[in-house]
Simulated assay, not measured.
Amino acid sequence: MRAKITYAITAAVLVVYFVLVGSRGVLLLRHGTVLTVTFGVAVLILPVIGLWFLWKNTRFVQKANALAAELDGEGGLPVDELVRTAGGRIDRDSADAVFAKRRAETEDSPEDWRCWFRLAVAYHDARDTPRARKAMQRAIALHEGKPVSV
């Protein structure tokens, strides 16, 4: 729940920022000189890119959460079997061992979105965020029946 609140607050702050930047871009456009119009257009592109990025990330999180809910309903969410340090951090060797198990599971069933979901969690636990995101994207694509590129 805390992560959802943090995400919502961050998204709201970003939207306010995009509105402020956009208003400055409009002011530059209204000034009417070649230089200010050029800068105005450039400034207006930033909020558009930012809103697109925010939208894509929000959709990704919603789809990943839907997969997690479905997997939880099936009783297939990965069990937290990781060893943690006294400070609560995940032990690297423990994360590597779980990752190896999840990778083997995914290699045995490469078309099963559930395996890719669990592999994404293992990547995340191993602190490999880019690969975790790619694995989750693959899980989403497989779940939606979309073609998956290799």
Rank of each mutant, 00 (worst) to 15 (best):
M1V: 12
R2L: 12
K4W: 13
K4M: 09
I5H: 06
I5G: 07
T6I: 15
Y7R: 10
Y7S: 11
A8I: 01
T10W: 09
T10D: 06
T10K: 13
A11M: 14
A11Y: 12
A11G: 05
A12S: 12
V13P: 05
V13H: 08
V13T: 14
Y17G: 07
V19K: 01
V21L: 15
V21F: 02
V21M: 07
G22F: 03
G22H: 03
R24M: 15
L27P: 00
L28C: 08
L29Y: 07
L29P: 01
L29G: 09
R30Y: 15
R30C: 15
G32Y: 08
V34C: 06
V34P: 04
T36E: 12
V37P: 00
V37Q: 08
V37D: 02
V37S: 05
T38A: 10
G40I: 08
V41C: 00
A42R: 05
L44V: 07
I45A: 10
I49V: 09
I49M: 07
I49S: 01
I49D: 00
L51Y: 03
L51S: 04
W52A: 12
F53M: 09
W55G: 09
K56W: 06
N57H: 11
R59V: 12
R59I: 08
F60K: 09
F60G: 12
Q62Y: 14
K63Y: 01
A64W: 05
A64R: 15
N65F: 00
N65R: 08
A66M: 05
L67A: 10
L67Y: 10
A68I: 01
A69M: 13
A69G: 05
D72T: 07
E74C: 00
G75R: 03
G76T: 02
L77T: 15
P78C: 08
P78M: 11
V79F: 11
D80M: 04
L82W: 11
L82C: 13
R84W: 00
T85C: 00
A86L: 08
A86G: 04
G87L: 11
G88Y: 08
R89Q: 09
R89T: 15
R89N: 14
I90Q: 02
D91K: 05
D91E: 14
R92G: 00
D93V: 04
D93W: 01
D93F: 03
S94V: 05
S94E: 08
D96V: 06
D96A: 15
A97Y: 07
A97T: 15
V98G: 06
A100G: 03
K101N: 09
R102H: 02
R103V: 01
E105Y: 04
T106C: 04
E107Y: 03
D108L: 15
D108P: 00
S109T: 11
S109R: 14
E111W: 02
W113Y: 15
W113T: 12
R114L: 03
R118H: 06
L119G: 02
V121I: 13
A122S: 12
Y123Q: 09
H124Q: 12
D125G: 14
D125T: 04
R127S: 08
R127W: 14
R131G: 04
R131A: 09
R133F: 07
R133C: 03
A135R: 02
A135F: 04
M136G: 03
Q137M: 13
I140L: 00
A141C: 07
H143K: 14
K146G: 02
K146H: 09
V148L: 08
V150Q: 09
V150H: 09
V150C: 05
